[in-house]
Design a protein around this nucleic acid. Structure first.
Length: 479
RNA sequence: GGCCCCGUCGUCCAGCGGCCUAGGACGCCGGCCUUUCAAGCCGGUAACGCGGGUUCGAAUCCCGUCGGGGCUGCCA
């Protein structure tokens, strides 16, 4: 039997990195086993689902290179792969479950349920549904429903323990008394997630369901539904959850939880891919930088770790830096250019000349853009970083350094990196001035900061006019 | 509260009874290099939650305990 796995995002928000990780592991599993990776949409909650979120989600998976063989956008033998288009199918399944007695109508109101749940909590009893409507005569319940009485539909949970072998957690068993009869169809007539998701898994012949551990305790429900449908449940694998730096569940509060946010900050898809592979799984040796093919070759679900992981952006940044440095220079330029906005031909040329130097010292594309900002502003169109100014421009050596350098630079013939460096170094040597004391003030004068790409190249890229103008401006500013 | 999962450096992983005086990576701290910042190189810091077993031998197996987390919805 060939492997068929799926990722089933719910378009109720941005693509969360937790979902991305689930998608990635499913994708790796499918590719490793030569199986089929399916992307379907769990959009039963019509109120909260939005098309723009779906677009963002699809875009995110594509960006990461997680291509799907069947599903939304690419089609396949199972229709649109959207739950909102399958309500008839769910109704059909429910009719069958009702007919077989596997499910029953429940006339309890939300208010009643709420009250009973609270009471149960207070008295230390299990808070689940007590199953009272399951005792009703089915045909009587049917006629009540036919006469328009509002009701939901619940699945009758079996009396035996539900057991299954989880691929990452091992043997699991849930006692029947801990499982209550849960809602599969809302009063509104809409199917719940449990129902729709499981029916889809059965219909689409999903062989393995790898998802977050938060669904572990719902698994008995899904197994019960599949069995009630007369199907064999999928094999489950519950992946460890991802947490934020504070050890709490990775949430919106941590700011950077949507894939889009990372993308906007200039993380490379290759780096994200690599990094997420290492969260809950390892290639089995001490390798950290691992290629896509290598990951596919070595990945398997039973090698996934059990304990949860903290999403460590520091390590992601390091890895991203590794990938950025490994980029072909032209490729790097192509990725940074869009971050810079509209450039004049001169600005682009200036950027290109400095790009290789920037590539070496950047961890994110956004950061690369910041490093070359000084090339893109007017000579008097930037502010000086306060700390840099205090450190370099208020000392005894500051003015003499800039004054002297200005004179030297005015005399430079051919304006290129080597000539600039030669002229400055010759002068520094003659005057017995340290590079530190001369070059740092110039750096601040040109870029506004004591941190910048290498200076001589920067001066070259900036051009003679701007370089001189900026030094004069700094001299003026020193008062 | 109930049910369930998890527990190796700050973080991510290796370890699956002896090769562990616990290894790698990120981070952090020093040093070298150096025009700043990076990169690179060298070195350092730092963990088997605790208590009982089992065993000749336990990070590895069992029990307990403590701690963290998830679920407990007519959300997914």
């Amino acid at each position: 039997m060939s492997v068929r796995v799926r990722i089933a995002p719910s378009p109720t928000g941005s693509l969360h990195v937790g979902n991305v990780r689930s998608g990635l592991f499913n994708w790796l599993f499918a590719r490793h086993h030569g199986g089929t990776f399916i992307l379907r949409v769990d959009d039963t909650d019509l109120e909260r689902c939005e098309e723009r979120y779906l677009d963002e989600i699809l875009d995110g998976f594509r960006w990461l290179g997680l291509d799907w063989d069947e599903g939304v956008g690419v089609g396949g033998p199972h229709g649109t792969y959207r739950q909102s288009d399958r309500f008839d199918r769910y109704a059909e399944v429910v009719d069958g479950l009702l007919a077989s007695g596997a499910a029953y109508r429940c006339f309890c109101t939300p208010e009643e349920l709420d009250e009973r749940r609270n009471a149960a909590q207070r008295e230390g009893r299990p808070p689940g549904y007590d199953g009272r409507c399951g005792l009703l005569d089915a045909s009587e319940a049917g006629s009540r429903a036919a006469s328009g009485e509002r009701h939901s539909i619940r699945l009758r949970m079996p009396d035996e323990a539900i057991e299954f072998a989880d691929l990452v957690r091992g043997d699991m068993a849930f006692a029947p008394e801990t499982q209550d009869d849960f809602v599969i169809v809302r009063t509104s007539g809409a199917p719940t997630y449990h129902l729709a998701s499981t029916v889809d898994d059965v219909d689409y012949e999903i062989t393995h369901v790898a998802r977050g551990e938060d669904l572990l305790s719902s698994t008995p429900k899904h197994i019960a539904i599949a069995r009630a449908m007369g199907a064999t449940p999928a094999i489950y694998a519950h992946l460890p959850l991802l947490f934020g730096p504070d050890g709490k569940k990775l949430s919106k509060r941590h700011g950077d939880t949507s894939l889009r946010a990372f993308r906007e900050q200039g993380f490379l898809p290759e780096a994200m891919f690599n990094f997420m592979c290492l969260l809950g799984w390892s290639p089995g040796n001490d390798e950290e930088v691992i290629s896509r093919d290598e990951a596919i070759a070595r990945f398997d679900l039973d090698a996934v770790q059990k304990n949860s992981a903290v999403f460590d952006t520091k390590k992601l940044e390091w890895l991203n830096g590794e990938y950025i440095r490994a980029l072909d220079p032209e490729d790097f330029i192509g990725r940074v250019l869009p971050e810079l906005g509209d450039l004049t031909a001169e600005q682009e040329a200036a950027f290109r000349s400095l790009a290789p130097l920037v590539q070496e010292r950047t961890k994110r594309l956004e950061e690369a853009a910041e490093q070359v900002q000084f090339l893109l502003v007017a000579d008097d169109g930037f502010d000086y970083d306060e700390a840099s100014w205090d450190k370099q421009m208020t000392k005894d050596f500051s003015r003499p350094s800039l004054d002297g350098a200005l004179g030297v630079l005015e005399g430079v013939g051919e304006w290129d990196t080597d000539s600039i460096e030669a002229a400055l170094r010759t002068w520094m040597e003659a005057e017995e001035l340290s590079a530190r004391k001369v070059l740092q003030p110039i750096r601040v004068a040109l870029t506004g900061s004591a941190i910048s790409p290498p200076l001589f190249e920067s001066m070259d890229a900036l051009g003679r006019e701007s370089t001189l103008a900026r030094i004069r401006r700094a001299l003026d500013a020193m008062g």
